[in-house]
Structure formats: C-alpha cells, structure tokens
Nucleic acid binder design. Structure first.
Lengths: 353, 353
DNA sequence: TTGTATGCGTTATCAA
DNA sequence: TTGATAACGCATACAA
C-alpha cells in the first residue's frame, strides 16, 4: 500500500464536498445534506437553491463517506462460475441494467464453480466491500461446505439465480427445470424416440437445475410408458479428453440411443461435435436437444433445438428483488419461476425405423 | 432511500472494529491499525499478538472507512460495450483474476457502445464510487464527445483495452491489428484470392481496431500487387434487416468477391449464415476469415479461420498495468501490443478457377 | 425550517 | 514503540 495521502489531483477526485456547497450557499452542512437527498425539513426554496448550487459546482456524493454512516454501500455483488458463459453474461446484463437505474453498482466475482473461491468472494463482499447484498449462482459444494449454509449469511440479503439450495429459505429466481426437461423429452417422444439419453456435467450432477431437468425427463418418459434406462443417463464433461468422449459416443450407440438430451446447450453442442467426428448424422441418425438457448445454439449447424428461459429477464428480476429487500428486509420471500419454452430448430427429427 | 440506521444484524455486517480489537488486546486503536497493516513502528511481538486476536475475532477492514481517509477505494471499473460478447467476457475474467489477487474488486459497467452511457458510468465510477481507476474498451463517439477527452479524466488512471484514441496519452493494451489484418489477407492471397472484401460494422468504422485491420488488409493487397477496390470495403451490421444483408451478398457476388474478411468473428459468422441461405458454399465458392477467435468460431461449420490475440491475457495485463500505476502514478506510460496469430481452420480454401 | 454537535471506522500526525 | 487525537465526508438527533 502506498504511503501518504494522495492529493485530489493525483486521484482525480473532484474534491467538492457538501461543506463547499454549504459555504457557497451560506447555510449549514446539515441543511445541504438534507436538501441534497430531497428530504423534508427543508423549505422548498432553499432546497432548490442548494440543489442548483451543488449541481453547478459539480458536487457528487462520496459513497465511502455516505456508506460509513448509512451502513449501505450501494454496491451489490454478483457471483457466478464464469462470465464467458453466455448465460451468466446475460444474467449479468439484466441485473446491471436494473441496478444502474437504481443507483447501484455491481461487483462481478468469478468463482469457476469452486466453492472455496465462492467463499472468499462472498466474505470479501460482505465484510470488506460491505456490499448491500448479492446475486448468486451458487457453486456446487460438498454437504454443508457451501458458504450459504453459514449462520453469518442469514442476515445478509442474497438472491439465488438459476440454481438454489432448496433447504435454504432465500429469494430465488429460477427456471421451471422440471417442466422444461419434460417439454423437451416429450418433443423427442413425439418424434418417435424411445431411447433417449440424458447427458450431464459431472460437476453439476447434484445441482438443482440438473436434478430438475432430469426429473422432468424421467416424468415424461414414464408418462409415455417408457421405462427409464439408468444406463442412458451419463456424464459428459465438455472438457474431457477426446478418447473419453468418444468412448461415450460408442456406448450411446451400443445402447441404441436415437436421441440425446444435453442438460445445457454446451453439452448438446459437444455431442454434436462428437457425432460429426464419428460420422453420425444429426438429426438423421441422432436427434439432439439442449437447454438454455445460448447464442451459440442458433449458430451451430444444425441449429440446436432447445429451451429458452430469458436469462436477461432473470437477472433483472434478481436485481429488483434484491434491491426491494434492502428497502424492506422483512418482506415475504420471493420465488420466481420462469416458464421455459421450446425453441424448435433443426437438431431433432423423426426417428428412423 | 430507507430511513434510520439499519442495525448490524439487519445488514449482516460483522460489526467488529479495530476498537474492539484494541480493547481485547489492551492497546490503542492506533497501534492496532498499524499492526494490522503490517506497518513498522510496532514491535514484532505486539503486532503478532494483535494480528492473532483480530483474526480470532473475525475482524475485517471496513473499506468505506479506510477509503475515506486513504482516498483509495480498492475498487476498479471495467467499462465495455457488452459482456455477452465473449471477447469482453474473457478480458473481464483476466482482469478479475489479477485484481482479486491484489485485493481489488471490479465494477463492471455495460455501455452498449453508447458514449452517453459510457459517460454516465465513468462519472459515477470516478466521482461517487471513487474507483481507483478504470479499464475501458472505449465507445465510438462523435469528435470530442468521448468522455476520455474531458480534462477531468486526465488525473484519473485508466487503461484502454483493444481500442484506443491515439491522440490520448494513456496506458494501453492493444492488439497489433494492422499485422493481424495483413496476416489474414495474405493467407487469402496465398490461396489465390484477389477479390477480397473487407466487411465491417458501421458503428465501429472509425474505431482504432477496425482502422488498423483495414490498414493491414490494404497493405497486404498492395504488397501483392493487387489494387484495393473501394467497392469491396462494405458495412455489414450483424443485426441489420435480412433484406439489407441479402442485398449485400448480391453485391458481393456482382463484384466478384471470392473471399471475405470480417473485421470481427461475429461479422464473419454472419456472412457464413447469409452465404448458406443464398446457397453459396463455404469455403467452396466463398472463403471467409474473421478476427478474434471467439468461442463461437470453432463451433460453427465450417469452423472459422481467424486471428487469435489472447483476450484473457490482455485483461490480466490491463489490470496489472492499472494497479501498478496506482502505486506509481508518474511511471512511464505502458503500451502493450499483443501479437495476433493465425488460427487456420476450414472456412478458407484455394480459389476456384 | 435551520443549525450545532456527534459519530461512522479507519488512517496518520505528533507528542509522549 | 506506543497512544491521544484530529481528520475523512456525510447523515442524523436534537436544540434553537
């Protein structure tokens, strides 16, 4: 850390305080403070005058000073695995748009879905930055290891997005994963498929969104009188070595799968790549669906059939719920569940006989 | 804004201050403060004792309080057009990884390449949040309208990434766009192409990265004895109406283009879509190159030939340069220019006779 | 309606 | 090496 106080010029700060404004207006700092926040207990006349003077002097509230006394930083955190994931990026943009309107800034923290990094980020956010609250896509963690189970988290506002821990009473903005999973599976069943594989990321196997989608998948199969085959529920990691992934494709064929449900678009696209490499036509011999409708989904060929659930909107809602909770801490919990809808593109086709 | 001071429980703050630590350790707050920052003027013995006590009590520095006196917020801004752009997202992750290591947080601000939003974001960051500095992908702006030309910006540290204003003396982390543009163009020339179109986004036509790439394109043509054809340098906006884009494809054919250089990958991919729609084989009848090597580039088919220039690394470097400047404000300017390298995939082929 | 005085948690100066 | 104390800029309780 640098020694000595930097001057205003060095730091580029404006250096104009309510004290300066008070002096210019010939009133006390208390009056200026009240006037500038549009509060009452100030005559309209002086308030307008002070506001005008402050504006002309270029005064802007110093967040740190204000924060010190109000205990509010006007800062929010958003912690997620990765922002290069187009989905999280859309959530961020939605949250950012609302937060900016309301005068909040968002600190984005990338966890790589590592619950230890997530813990560090959240502790910094809560204890040092003193963010007023946080929007979180929680990282998978061993039982009880997630920071969200810490008692210290209970009094700090947070909103789960996309994933959640069902035993934690918190605000949430989720997708109806079960419904989406069932919808996509039914779509495949209607095309005549009966051997439908469910492929998921092993890291996220226990996450609520994957479990929900699988549950929907199983429900749709059962409802159609198809007995779910455990051997058709397999892990596929996008970054796994090529041999491993190829082996999985072989298994898929051996087990007679004619369709694949990737728990997220990225997984579905990976399957598409593997199929192409193996000379398997999509959707001729293998139909593929994903979940999420990422930007990549309509760019790959064939364009991916998937479920869309408005991530940008979810981010906006999450920010709104969080900010509303800051104003009314004891309001009832919010749980918003977005309706996924089918985006029917060209990666699915009627099963071949 | 909510009235009344929230209690520590309400806000989830720890509430432990150096005063508490001082009391527990039986020393003054001044001594605690010194000890906790690892400064000298404290005996090793008491320092260690205080540090241990503080840790056991769960003390964490309150940024707002510290910030108020040090004039440093330990907050950085990153302003960019959009984070759903995979490139910016990678820049962010690189910057975030370094900033986190150094104890800084990053506020991400999305401008949509609108210089007015950019101005708002930067004013908030500088004057209210009092971010110590900012990493910026500057928005295109009418002459003199960019906030970066404001005198008030001069004393505030910022680093340009990807794009810059050449008449502004600032730290920069750029790509050698001219070199990359020439490299890609030469690649096409070596495949026998002579009618090579240069397609750019009209919004960014005047930006340094586009101008650099075009300059490289022109240089490579000239060097090969090909006279640049102004009619082959055209605007293509990714979100333009389909008719407009189709018209452009027709012009491309009319002018005999056998290859297209999209100034960014997204543009190249758009051309690929349009070509497919028009029944034009890529790369059989039309070769396409992009710039940037986004995640989408290897996912489209055919996979895109492009130039890679390590956005994550650029973000990391930008954060490092910025933080170093905070420690030594008068150090020499940094200008880092990344070397782009060719990623030769399958969207280019030898020209048909 | 306005002003005075105090405090927020930390750093930094200066005297002990 | 330590401690008392004055800032930092703002918000608020209370007095005027």
């Amino acid at each position: 850390m640098r020694k000595g106080r930097p001057t205003a010029e060095e730091t580029g700060l404006s250096g104009i305080t309510i004290k300066d404004v008070a002096q210019a207006a010939g009133v006390s700092v208390a009056t200026v403070s009240k006037a500038l926040r549009g509060a009452d207990r100030v005559s309209n006349e002086t308030r307008e005058r002070i506001v005008a003077i402050a504006a002309s002097m270029g005064w802007r509230a110093n967040n740190a000073a204000r924060s010190l006394v109000t205990k509010r930083s006007y800062l929010l955190g958003l912690v997620t695995a990765s922002i290069t994931n187009n989905f999280s990026a859309q959530v961020y943009e939605g949250a950012d748009s609302y937060a900016t309107e309301k005068g909040y800034g968002i600190l984005l923290c990338v966890t790589e879905d590592d619950y230890r990094k997530e813990r560090q980020a959240l502790e910094r956010l809560r204890l040092e930055v003193r963010a007023d609250g946080v929007i979180a896509v929680p990282a998978p963690a061993p039982l009880g290891k997630s920071i969200f189970y810490d008692p210290s988290m209970a009094a700090w506002p947070y909103v789960f997005v996309t994933r959640h821990f069902s035993d934690l009473a918190s605000d949430r903005v989720l997708c109806d994963d079960a419904k989406g999973g069932a919808m996509l599976t039914r779509h495949l069943i209607e095309l005549g498929h009966r051997k439908i594989a469910f492929l998921f990321d092993s890291l996220h196997a226990g996450c609520s969104h994957v479990m929900g989608r699988r549950q929907g998948y199983l429900a749709a199969l059962t409802e159609a009188g198809i007995r779910p085959d455990p051997e058709l529920m397999m892990a596929l990691d996008v970054n796994a070595p090529a041999e491993l992934s190829r082996a999985l494709m072989t298994q898929l064929e051996a087990r007679g799968a004619t369709a694949v449900f990737g728990h997220v678009d990225r997984t579905a696209v990976r399957v598409m790549q593997l199929a192409r490499a193996a000379g398997i036509d999509v959707p001729g011999r293998l139909s593929i669906v994903g979940f999420g409708n990422l930007n990549i989904s309509e760019l790959v060929s064939p364009p991916l059939t998937t479920a869309d659930y408005a991530p940008r909107e979810m981010g906006r809602l999450a920010a709104r719920i969080l900010i509303e909770r800051l104003e009314r801490p004891s309001a009832a919990r919010h749980q918003i569940v977005m309706e996924p809808h089918l985006v029917n593109r060209s990666s699915t086709a009627r099963v071949r006989r």
